[in-house]
């Protein structure tokens, strides 16, 4: 096989899978919503959201604590340990909250989504649904997509809040930064619409991308055990890369031009 031919083939394959991914999402979003779908979505929020809560809370706590520790040792050299609050809060709200949540979500919930849908495909459950005149896009894909899009920003907010409390734990309770200045300088620096809202927007974008990749990789998986394991790996790799790449673009758009 010559090189040009394989480049062309790969390009075509990539374009075709983009096309399939888009069609799948469109089919899921445009599917006529039923009252049943809300219940199914709640069920899925439980699976992707509530079951990810523990890892999000624990990671948020530790990341907040580590940031306070690292920040303190640097800031104290300049006598600026009072700025610990805004440093922890801004890093969490603008970057670490949305990004780390998205990465953890991809690993915890995204891979599970891919494997679940891939297995449904392999065990002919999706085919069986279709033969029962039930659209798998509406019944299986749509609730999982919406659940991911709703749950991830919620997780990111909890992550940031817990992280700030973790920073307080280390910075104030352990290292002795003044509690008043931790909160008040934070309040003076953090802006609701610029920092908090932009963080939430970021998180929404990541949620759409990660959930989309996870669901599509499962839906498009080769229905064998090898195919599913490959799809699961690809979900984690692709969504992590997409999150980090998009994070740069979004940060440049939101905070780059002042």
């Amino acid at each position: 096989m010559n090189y040009l031919q394989s480049i062309g083939q790969n390009t075509l394959n990539a374009l075709m899978s983009f096309g399939r991914a888009f069609l799948m999402l469109a089919g899921a979003i445009l599917a006529i919503p039923q009252s049943k779908n809300i219940r199914l979505t709640v069920q899925q929020i439980y699976v992707v959201g509530v079951q990810s809560l523990l890892i999000i809370i624990v990671s948020g706590l530790f990341i907040g604590m580590v940031m306070a520790l690292q920040g303190y040792t640097i800031l104290v050299n300049y006598g600026a340990e009072g700025s610990l609050g805004p440093m922890v809060a801004l890093s969490l709200l603008r970057e670490l909250g949305p990004v780390v949540t998205a990465l953890l979500f991809a690993g915890r919930a995204g891979s599970a989504l891919t494997a679940e849908i891939g297995l449904m495909k392999a065990t002919e459950q999706l085919s069986s649904l279709e033969m029962m005149a039930v659209d798998p896009l509406r019944r299986i894909i749509a609730p999982r997509f919406w659940a991911g899009v709703i749950a991830m920003p919620m997780l990111a907010l909890i992550f940031s809040a817990i992280g700030i409390l973790g920073g307080h734990l280390v910075g104030v309770d352990w290292l002795g930064v003044d509690a008043g200045s931790y909160w008040s300088i934070m309040q003076a620096t953090v802006e609701w619409d610029k920092d908090v809202v932009n963080g939430i927007i970021k998180s929404f974008v990541f949620a759409i991308v990660v959930t989309w990749i996870a669901i599509f990789k499962g839906y498009d998986a080769i229905p064998t055990s090898e195919g599913i394991s490959q799809a699961t790996t690809q979900t984690v790799v692709y969504s992590s890369l997409a999150v980090l790449g998009l994070d740069f673009v979004l940060t440049a758009l939101m905070f780059g031009i002042n």
Binding site: E124, S128, M131, A133
Partner: peptide, 16 residues
Amino acid sequence: YQTRKKMSMLFQSGAL
């Protein structure tokens, strides 16, 4: 989809 309601398929694996 209307036609499929009139037919049914038993998959090899059962597909429960």
